[in-house]
Nucleic acid binder design. Structure first.
Lengths: 112, 112
DNA sequence: CAAATATACATAATTTTCTTATACATAGAA
DNA sequence: TTCTATGTATAAGAAAATTATGTATATTTG
């Protein structure tokens, strides 16, 4: 907590992208994967993650499948068909955002 | 309206960066400059812009100077000393964000 | 000349998306 | 046995937008 350098709105994109790469994942696994990929720089908090997963599911972008491992619950999420499409859209939007920020922050680069 | 592709939290950085490049600007001018630099892709709405300017001013990052042009008001904003420092911080954070997103979205690239 | 558009500021209600704190429960390590 | 890890969840509140108005002057266009 407290070290968040993420702009708001990017969490959905991260979740979707991870599910595109990893087929199915559960919540806790996502938090660990993000920590690993960013070498600890970024920590996804549960308070942000679970509501986001629930929303993506409610919006029909994710399917959920409950598994019991030992005596504990896991909820595996995977992309639906429309989730796969939306992932592509979100990634495009992110590229667009990066380009836009580049134009604003370093206009010289876009002249050539 | 409606075409916003900005992640929340990036508007402050944009404003600060523009003021770093242009010394002093007024609100409407900022909206036009952003439109120009992004070739119309990005439109800063007043409902976001003016509260953001007021907050930056309240936080001591901007100074304001009211000018009368014809019969109309203009409020010119410029960076204070601490605003200049904060601009550097915000730009660093943005670079950090870009790197983090790169690690998450295209992990292959960060291997080399 | 009238009407539409551009210039210029502002705020209020609402929504989205976080942070922070709390809660519950099992499993493993110290 | 206590601390940490694993695993999910929600509630209160804050931050930062969107959307919709409101007010006023200046300019362009039909």
């Amino acid at each position: 907590m407290g070290n968040q350098k993420l702009y708001k709105g990017s969490l959905q994109t991260i979740i979707l992208k991870l599910l595109e790469s990893n087929d199915k994942m559960y919540g806790y696994e996502i938090t660990q994967k993000v920590k690993e990929l960013t070498k600890g720089e970024l920590k996804i908090t549960e308070g942000a993650l679970y509501p986001a997963l629930h929303k993506l599911e409610a919006d029909g972008l994710l399917d959920v499948e409950v598994a019991k491992v030992g005596n504990r619950l896991r909820k595996y999420y995977k992309l639906t068909e429309s989730g796969t499409k939306e992932t592509a859209n979100k990634l495009d939007e992110m590229q667009e955002f990066l380009r836009t920020m580049q134009q604003l922050v370093n206009p010289k680069l876009s002249l050539e």
